[in-house]
Simulated assay, not measured.
Amino acid sequence: MTSTTTPFVDVIRSRRSARKFLPTPLPASDIRAVLEDAQTAPSNSNTQPWEVHVVSGALRDAISDELLRAYEDGRESADFTFDYGDGTYLERSRAHGATLYQAWGIGRSDVEGRREVVRDNLRFYGAPHVAFLFMPKLGDGVRTAGDLGMYAQTLLLSLTARGYHSIPQTILGMYADVVRDALGLSDELKLLFGISFGTADPAAPVNDVHMHRLPLDESVVLHGVAD
């Protein structure tokens, strides 16, 4: 075994969530190649319980418009609960938000500025493509959602390896009915989240933000591993 790094390690360490994209579409061949890579992700008993809908062009624009209307009307329709609790995880989420709002130049009291950030989220940050990740509700859904997480990470890393950029967006799952209606899908398919992707705008300061990661010993316990 070797302890040297590889180009794949560089891909892992360089992946970042972009929050402003150029409108240029990706070649269809590259989109298909990324999806073929994601299809190799592991899953429980090889069930491969994902159904992924990639939208571009006019349909992408129409879904964004409907999401924005649902947001203004307060019509959320999440398939899954979303709660950070009231301790450590909430603190981390708030620190994340503070970092981003600072990069956008939006103050704590700027209510309309913060609402515009949500709208930009629902515009997919200008990305030309969005992948919506659906799953069947099997049991309590936890293991199936874990499978979709492995699929999504494979997709994200494939995009990075090919020189593209992306951002997973939980907020898209907050309007599951809107997306299902636009795609003509049954409510038996549950929307976990979406991934917007394309080419990051190199001139956008928010794309230079690097989020903090915990030191290893704050989240991992090694048993029987010698220093």
Rank of each mutant, 00 (worst) to 15 (best):
L191I: 08
S3Q: 11
T5N: 04
L68K: 04
V209G: 10
S166W: 10
S109K: 10
R94K: 11
N44Y: 01
R162K: 14
P27E: 15
D227E: 14
M150Y: 02
T199D: 11
R69W: 01
R13S: 13
P7V: 06
H96D: 14
A204I: 09
G57N: 05
G87Q: 05
R16T: 13
S77A: 13
K137I: 05
G87D: 12
D201H: 03
L214H: 06
L156K: 03
V220W: 01
D73L: 13
T5H: 07
S93K: 08
R32V: 14
Q169K: 07
E66N: 09
G113I: 10
G126F: 13
Q153E: 15
S14C: 06
R60T: 01
T199A: 09
G105P: 05
A203D: 15
A33N: 10
L216Y: 00
L222E: 14
D140P: 11
P23M: 12
R19P: 12
L192Y: 09
L26S: 07
V142C: 06
E72R: 11
S43R: 01
Y84E: 11
S219V: 11
D10P: 00
T40N: 00
D120S: 12
D147F: 04
R108S: 14
A176N: 12
P23W: 09
H96T: 14
R213L: 10
N46E: 03
H53P: 01
T99A: 14
P168W: 09
L189R: 14
L192A: 13
H129S: 12
P215S: 06
G173K: 09
D177I: 05
A103W: 04
M1L: 09
S93D: 13
G126H: 13
N121E: 14
A131I: 12
Y71P: 01
P205I: 06
M1K: 00
T160A: 11
T47V: 05
A95W: 01
S186R: 10
P49Q: 03
F80K: 05
E188L: 10
V179L: 10
D187Y: 00
G97H: 08
L68I: 11
S196A: 15
H96C: 07
E76R: 09
V225P: 00
H223N: 11
P25V: 03
H165N: 15
N207R: 07
L157T: 05
